[in-house]
Design a binder for these strands. Structure first.
Length: 541
RNA sequence: GUCCCGCUCGUCUAGGCCGGCCUAGGACACCAGAUUUUCAUUCUGGGAACACGGGUUCGAAUCCCGUGCGGGAUACCA
């Protein structure tokens, strides 16, 4: 292994005394840079870190790596924080919650990095590099031309005092580079990949501090992982090579190395890197389209980890009970939107009806399918309407487009037109059925008060439900509506299925949807009669 | 190019570390059927995989080597 250079004792000490209570606690972190919105890959990394921390009874922190000042955006930061909260990943330390090891923005820890830089420089682990980017590039090209590995050519690694003075006199602003060992193997233990070995000659003298004084990722990361007492690092595979650079610096400083786990990237359908074509780049898009967050969490967690051999739906608690960092997969996973949707639909079907209404409400209101006031005036009606679609939607955002017909007379879509035009006698049937309903004690239509009926009948009514007679109830419930409609069809010698089609079309404007008797109940007398008559005439002309 | 990592049904995966329990299990998707007033849900059944080639072994999806393919890194981005 490496022979660390002697390190000068340093005063003040590099690290403040860590709080006692965290000495032995597992500490994990998610450390995104606010240069872009949080995407699925980032969310998964966050989930795994969070899960290890929670499973081990440790602490989970959020650290913002904002050292690339040119590319940071406020919006990206906002999306990261909102996105993590939305998916149910909460942090014990970090932005907006504080903590004992802050600050949690790297841009606010510059003095700390400067101190480390000084020590590293004094100890000879770092050196000033005066080369311009062009010169570095030229050196790289030269190495490449010589058939060697294209990397920084280490031209300033061993500058004499005079050479340095000359560069200073020229006004060159130096960057600080890490003096990497020139030969030997470095072996790293990775919880997912096992033993990984690399020839250190493959690693170049990386820049720690830019000429403007900003630290670079690898440098700030080591300082912070150490200062924040991070014990386990779960991060993307793209950092596997960085782990060697970091570990070498950890050893040089005689700091305790965290345990590493490098998770593979999430790939698109084609097996290539995830792109906007495959998936949304911004996790909040899923929130805005009404994907249930628990389902998204569940699905993402499954992309590279499995709960058990025969189950893939599980709660956060169940996950924490058996999550182990070592069980994360080494192979990359392809993202599958269909399975995500199936998972979402499953979660929605498991929700209680009141919870579903609450979850779906913002979309219903936003898209104008249901006026806000109706939630207060007609809670039973809304709940019944929503419940009728519980097994027909995968996302909350799917609902408004489907149940608009409940409160507003709908236009006919193509399927409905076909259903209406199929039988020449349909207009007659509709008119006659409208007359029948008019004389029937159906619940009244919205906006009349119909709470009594909606409270007494929970839709959708199961096939084999046993109901009191209509006159005992005082109104027709779906089973009565069904019995009446069947009798009506039989009397007139109409095949039941042939009657149902145009009635459904006239009532809902489409050829899909809840059971027809639930529909009639939901709509109430006036709306049913009006719609049936309207389409009886329009169908004739 | 070089270095690193990976490879079980179309997809996510169980199994692999501790070889025989695997005629390879589950889920999504697909196909067929049942239920049915549509759509959906639900239920039943079906097709579908150990990348390839060598070893080691009585025996390999499981261990070893090579090949192929995929991914990552090779930045004064993270």
């Amino acid at each position: 292994m490496l022979d660390p250079l002697p390190l000068a004792p340093c005063d003040p000490p590099l690290r403040d005394d860590p709080p006692i209570d965290t000495m032995d606690t597992p500490r994990l972190r998610f450390a995104p840079s606010p240069t872009g919105p949080l995407h699925l890959g980032g969310a998964r990394t966050a989930i795994y870190n969070w899960a290890v921390a929670r499973a081990l009874g440790g602490r989970f922190l959020l650290r913002i790596e904002d050292t690339d000042t040119a590319r940071n955006t406020e919006d990206a930061l906002r999306i990261i924080l909102e996105g993590l909260r939305w998916i149910g990943v909460d942090w014990d330390e970090g932005p907006e919650v504080g903590g004992t090891h802050g600050p949690y923005f790297q841009s606010e820890r510059l003095a700390l990095y400067a101190r480390y830089a000084e020590v590293l420089l004094a100890a000879g682990h770092a050196y000033k590099c005066y080369a311009t980017p062009e010169e570095v590039e030229a050196g790289r090209a030269r190495l490449l031309a010589e058939g060697k590995k294209g990397m920084y050519d280490r031209r300033d690694r061993d500058l004499t005092a005079e050479q340095r003075a000359r560069h200073e006199a020229e006004g060159r602003a130096p960057s600080l580079r890490y003096r990497m060992p020139l030969e030997g193997k470095f072996v790293l233990q990775d919880a997912i990949r096992g033993t990984v070995e690399v020839d250190v000659a493959e690693l170049d003298d990386w820049v720690m501090v830019r000429p403007d004084g900003m630290p670079t990722y690898n440098f700030a990361c080591v300082v912070d992982d150490s200062e924040m007492k991070i014990t386990h690092v779960v991060r993307g595979e793209e950092h596997l090579m960085n782990a060697f650079k970091q570990a070498i610096m950890f050893e040089a400083l005689d700091l305790e190395l965290p345990r590493y786990a490098h998770v593979p990237l999430i790939l698109g359908k084609d097996g290539k890197k995830l792109s906007k074509r495959d998936v949304s780049t911004n996790i909040l898009d899923y929130r805005d389209k009404g994907y249930p967050p628990d389902a998204v969490f569940n699905y993402i967690a499954l992309l590279g980890w499995s709960f058990s051999g025969d189950r893939d739906v599980f709660s956060r608690e169940e996950m924490l009970a058996r999550f182990r960092m070592e069980d994360i997969h080494a192979a990359g996973a392809k993202f599958d939107e269909e399975k995500l949707l199936a998972m979402c639909g499953h979660y929605i079907r498991q929700m209680g009806r009141a919870d579903l209404v609450a979850a779906v409400r913002p979309w219903l209101v936003r898209d104008g399918a249901v006026p806000e006031a109706a939630f207060a005036s007609h809670p039973g009606l809304i709940e019944n309407a929503v419940a009728c679609y519980q097994e027909r939607i995968d996302r909350y955002g799917d609902l408004p487009g489907k149940l608009g017909w409940v409160l507003v007379d709908p236009e006919l879509d193509d399927g409905a037109k076909k259903g209406l035009a199929k039988h020449a006698d349909a207009p007659q049937w509709l008119r006659a059925y409208a007359d029948l309903l008019e004389a029937t004690p159906l619940p009244p239509s919205f906006p009349a008060d119909r709470e009594r009926c909606d409270r007494a009948v929970a839709l959708p009514v199961p096939k084999d439900a046993v109901f009191p007679a209509a006159d005992q109830l005082g109104f027709f419930a779906p089973p009565h509506i069904e019995a009446q409609m069947r009798a009506f069809a039989e009397e007139r010698g109409i095949k039941f299925g042939h009657l149902v089609q145009p009635v459904r079309a006239a009532l809902t404007g489409t050829d899909k949807g809840p059971g027809l008797f639930d529909v009639v109940f939901l709509l109430g007398k006036e709306a049913c009669v009006r719609r049936l008559r309207r389409h009886a005439t329009s169908a004739r002309s």
